[in-house]
Amino acid sequence: MGDETAPDEIGPKQMAMVEYLKLGDDPHLVAYVCDACGATYFDRRNACAACGARDFSTGRLANTGAVRTFTIVHRAARGVPAPYVSAVVDLDGGGRVKSNIINIEPTPSNVSLGMRVRLATYVTATDDDGNEAVAFGYEPEAA
């Protein structure tokens, strides 16, 4: 996603954990948008799965949206701290994304379907050179 102006790395120390997260003063997500039909994707593309077209632009997605579905993972993959909330968020203005709901206690009473959320970033891992990987999640908008 090289034609996006916001940097995905700040200096030597912080890197977005995935390329579709852009850091800087205004962290946000970008997606590949099919020029022909508008379908959005986060992964490197060969062609559009919706219409078959081959040309894509990069577009910014909204930082806010509503929880479409969620689960609270108690038995997690090895090395993953649990419990945590995994959710799919319908972003305002289009696009759907999966990530964790963060900055809440992971219990059913604290998460609800349709809940308004906004993007938040945090450092998730550090490598041997001191580089930090920055992840994104969604926190309740009301918080």
């Binding site: 995935v18 986060f42 490197r44 689960t71 799919v88």
Partner: peptide, 24 residues
């Protein structure tokens, strides 16, 4: 394809079967 620097499982939601079908 996502240009990730760390594993996404548990960081960007879950892809494990119990969670995927819970979300469904």
């Amino acid at each position: 394809r996502f240009g990730s620097v760390v594993g996404v499982e548990g960081r960007l939601g879950t892809n494990m079967m119990p969670g995927v079908f819970a979300q469904a």
